[in-house]
C-alpha cells in the first residue's frame, strides 16, 4: 500500500499538520455532542489515537511531539479524563512507535500493524493499571477492552483512508526532504 514516492515538500507537511489539528478538534467536538446523555454499553474506537499512530508510524517527521502532547492534553481536559494520565500514555506510546518507525518502513503491512498493536495493548494495560491504582473512581474494564479492540481494527482502515485521501505513505529508504535531510 505504501506510496513509492512519499511527498516531502514543506507545504505538504504543514498541510498535514493543520489537517491533524483540525481532525483532532473535529473528533473532540463530535465526542462532546450531547446526543446520548444516558450511560452507554458500547463505545467507539479512539480515532484520535489511531490517526496519531498511523501517521507517526508512516511519517514520524510530520507529526512531531510538540503537536501530539498538546492535542492529547486538550482532549484530557475537554473530555473529562483525569488530566495528564491519558496524554502521558499517549506520548510514551507514540514515542515508542516513532523510535521504531525507521524499521517499520521495511515491513509488510501486517507486521507494521502488529507492532502498532503491541504498543497499543501495552498503552491500554498501563492506562487501566494506573487508573485503577491512582484514580478514586472506577473505570469500566470491559468498555476499555472493547475500545482497544475497535481501535486496533481501525488501524488498517485509517491507514488506507489516509493514503487515499492525502497520499500519506512511507518514505523510501534514503529519501530526502526539501532541505536534503535524510528522512
Amino acid at each position: 500500500m505504501a506510496n513509492p514516492v512519499a511527498q516531502t515538500s514543506a507545504g505538504y507537511i504543514w498541510a498535514m499538520r493543520a489537517g491533524y489539528i483540525a481532525l483532532s478538534l473535529a473528533l473532540i467536538f463530535t465526542h462532546l455532542l450531547p446526543l446520548e446523555t444516558a450511560p452507554r454499553r458500547w463505545i467507539g474506537p479512539d480515532l484520535i489515537l489511531v490517526v496519531s499512530f498511523v501517521w507517526i508510524a508512516r511519517r514520524p517527521d510530520i507529526i512531531p511531539l510538540w503537536l501530539v502532547a498538546p492535542m492529547f492534553f486538550l482532549g484530557d481536559l475537554l473530555l473529562q479524563r483525569p488530566p495528564g494520565l491519558w496524554s502521558t500514555c499517549a506520548v510514551l506510546a507514540t514515542e515508542a512507535l516513532r523510535m521504531r518507525a525507521e524499521d517499520l518502513r521495511d515491513m509488510v503491512f501486517v507486521l507494521e500493524w502488529s507492532v502498532a498493536a503491541v504498543i497499543l495493548i501495552a498503552f491500554y494495560i498501563v492506562y487501566f493499571t494506573l487508573w485503577s491504582l491512582l484514580v478514586p473512581f472506577d473505570i469500566s474494564g470491559s468498555l476499555l477492552t472493547l475500545q482497544l479492540v475497535l481501535t486496533l481494527l481501525c488501524y488498517p482502515v485509517v491507514a488506507g483512508l489516509s493514503w487515499l485521501v492525502s497520499g500519506l505513505g512511507k518514505t523510501a529508504p534514503g529519501q530526502v526532504d526539501a532541505k536534503g535531510r535524510v528522512l
Binding site: L33, P34, E36, T37, P39, L79, R81, L144
Partner: peptide, 15 residues
C-alpha cells in the same frame, strides 16, 4: 440548556 456531554462513556456529566 445542555450544550455538551462529558465526551466519553467513562464519565457521566453534561455542560
Amino acid at each position: 440548556v445542555v450544550m455538551a456531554d462529558s465526551g466519553s462513556p467513562f464519565r457521566q456529566s453534561v455542560l
